[in-house]
């Protein structure tokens, strides 16, 4: 009993220590967002950086809304991230299901090719994708229906290239393989189509993997920088991460405003994580994925 209390106490102490350690950058960010550039820089080398001391004001926040169309950027990022998640869940789960459950020629080869794609970093693909995106056809209703060339300055260029993901397909394949085969066989005997089996049996039983893939897709989409930086020239389609660059001016970086902006863009992620925390922890534990 004594040992277990001691062990519990040690665990609590170490966990508290780690929590404080990990929360420090966030505290620094929030506290600095209320300080002027000068006082922020003066406080940065002392413990004052983490404390609400000195002259505190909301000036940085006002200036953020003054310098950047924050609402527009927030909407763009939420829309692009959510649309990619929804489309990605649908596409990748169907591909994963087809590979895990159905028998067809070349299945193993397709899976090998998808797995091989995992080793390619996005930076390698960015330039070829850029050339491709410049040539792809689209359509417009401005001045009557007509076809256009190039996807630059649009939502689709931020969503469609990332909807299908090798890693998400791999997760779905692994998860669907674990579902009992007998369920598919029984459904097939009852005359269900493969799509019906996917929709009515596989999807309802796969909450954890859907949750994992949703979060693992949402976060990189939210944080995406390089792709929108090179394909979006029009402010109305810019993402919230590009907005951060508005505060880096030649030899005049506004650190207080950057901290205010970061605080504002962290809020949706914190809300998302807190509201889905229980679900996320379950899904991570059951799928064996560690963040």
């Amino acid at each position: 009993m004594k040992r277990s209390r001691l062990s519990l106490g040690f665990s609590l102490l170490s966990m508290s220590g780690l929590s404080i350690f990990f929360i420090f950058p966030l505290v620094f960010m929030v506290m600095s967002s209320f300080k002027s550039n000068d006082s922020l820089l003066q406080d940065v080398s002392s413990v004052r950086a983490f404390l609400p001391v000195g002259h505190l004001s909301l000036d940085n926040y006002w200036e953020v809304f003054n310098r950047v169309p924050f609402g527009r950027f927030l909407f763009n990022s939420l829309f692009v991230s959510t649309a990619t998640v929804v489309l990605g869940l649908f596409l990748n789960s169907m591909i994963g299901f087809a590979i895990a459950k159905m028998e067809w020629r070349g299945k193993k080869m397709v899976l090998s090719i998808i797995l091989a794609l995992l080793i390619l970093p996005f930076d390698v693909l960015a330039i070829p994708m850029l050339y491709l995106a410049a040539k792809l056809p689209w359509f417009s209703f401005t001045g009557g229906f007509h076809f256009t060339q190039g996807w630059f300055n649009s939502y689709q260029i931020q969503i469609l290239p990332f909807a299908a993901s090798a890693f998400s397909i791999f997760l779905f394949v692994q998860y669907f393989k674990g579902l009992p085969k007998e369920l598919d066989e029984a459904a097939l005997v009852d005359g269900a189509s493969w799509f019906r089996i996917y929709r009515s049996i596989a999807v309802p039983l796969s909450g954890p993997v859907f949750g994992t893939v949703a979060i693992l897709t949402f976060l990189p989409m939210w944080n995406m920088y390089l792709w929108p930086a090179i394909t979006i020239q029009d402010e109305k389609y810019r993402s919230i991460m590009l907005g951060l660059q508005y505060f880096y001016v030649n030899f005049g970086t506004s650190w207080g405003q950057i901290m205010a902006y970061l605080t504002l863009l962290t809020i949706p992620i914190v809300i998302l994580f807190l509201s889905m925390q229980r679900f996320f922890v379950t899904s991570v534990a059951s799928s064996g994925i560690k963040g």
């Binding site: 330039i127 850029l130 050339y131 995106a133 410049a134 190039g150 630059f152 930086a229 090179i230 394909t231 020239q233 029009d234 402010e235 590009l242 907005g243 660059q245 508005y246 880096y248 001016v249 030649n250």
Partner: peptide, 21 residues
Amino acid sequence: IKAFPNPNYNDAVVAAAAGKS
């Protein structure tokens, strides 16, 4: 006028040149 943030301006121009835009 279309304005870009300074840090990624050159990348945007090079990308636009590649895309002929």
